[in-house]
Amino acid sequence: MAPATHVLTLPGPMLRRGFWLYVWRVETPAGELLYVGRTGDNSSPHASAPYTRMGQHLGSVATQNALRRHLEKRGLPLEACDFHLVSHGPLYDEVAKADGATRAALMAAHTPRRDIVGAMEKALAEGLSAAGYAVVNTVHCKWRLDAALWAPVRAAFAEHFPELNAIPPPLTARHRA
């Protein structure tokens, strides 16, 4: 491969920590693939920025590089793909780390936000799949979707994925608020 110049433009707000939803749109030699994700950990009271997750998804740490593993499983080298990250948020700020706050207290504040955004992540992945997009991951979540909170988020993603408008919200009874 010959040397080439490439340009990446990163909007400053994508550096803000908090609870975000995002969709990777990957142009591959085999066609377009999507990966749906969120920031806001399950196991800790932290919520990173989309930019941070962007690097992790393409990195070599097995517990963080889900997108890379999905592409490699399909025999698609990263260098043969073009990556577009559509992120929306922050829907909520990261929980503030107060002096003397215990991990349990931080998790108690973090968990409700995580659950709301996690339910939206599942609805987004299922909605994009139902609309005919090739979503490579399955989001496993039993948290209840708040339809009122979901509506503007869904509309924001539908600007980039217009077929999402063809799927009536909420997707299933399981998602009803």
Rank of each mutant, 00 (worst) to 15 (best):
D41T: 12
R74D: 04
L76N: 08
L106N: 01
P3T: 05
H160A: 09
G18V: 11
A109K: 07
H140L: 09
A80C: 09
L145F: 09
D82G: 13
P29E: 05
D93R: 15
T102R: 08
Y92H: 10
A173Q: 04
G118M: 12
T172W: 04
A104L: 15
L8M: 10
Y51M: 15
M120C: 09
L33N: 09
S43A: 15
S48F: 12
A98R: 13
V23P: 08
L171D: 03
F83I: 10
L91A: 11
G127T: 04
H6D: 06
T52D: 10
I116N: 05
K142A: 12
L78F: 01
R74Q: 09
A119F: 12
P13S: 14
R103F: 15
A125Q: 04
D93Q: 10
V26F: 01
A155I: 02
L33C: 13
A101W: 03
V86C: 06
L58M: 13
H140T: 12
A155Y: 07
E72K: 11
H46A: 15
L171P: 06
Y51L: 14
L76E: 11
R154G: 02
T28D: 00
P90W: 05
P162T: 00
L58T: 03
L164R: 01
R69I: 02
T102A: 02
A119E: 03
N137P: 01
R25G: 00
N42W: 12
A166K: 07
V86R: 05
R74M: 03
F19L: 05
L85Q: 07
A104D: 11
H46T: 13
H88E: 06
T111K: 14
L33V: 13
N65E: 00
G59C: 09
A156V: 04
T63Y: 12
N65V: 00
Y22C: 09
D82Y: 07
A156I: 00
D41Q: 08
D146E: 03
W24M: 10
A108Q: 11
P162Q: 00
R176C: 06
L91R: 10
S48V: 12
G31N: 14
G132R: 12
A4N: 07
L106V: 02
N137A: 03
L71P: 01
S43P: 01
H57R: 08
L106I: 07
L21Q: 02
F19Q: 10
A105S: 05
A158C: 03
V26C: 11
L71F: 07
A177E: 08
S44E: 04
H175S: 11
V7F: 14
P152N: 00
S43M: 04
A166N: 12
A147C: 04
A105Q: 11
P13Q: 06
R144Q: 14
P168H: 02
L78W: 06
P3E: 03
A47N: 02
M120R: 07
A166D: 14
L76D: 07
R174I: 03
V117E: 11
H46M: 15
M54W: 15
R16C: 06
P152I: 06
D82E: 13
G75S: 09
A158S: 05
G75H: 14
S48W: 07
P170E: 03
V86S: 12
R53V: 04
P50K: 07
Y133I: 00
A62S: 06
G40Q: 10
A177D: 13
T52C: 13
P11Q: 13
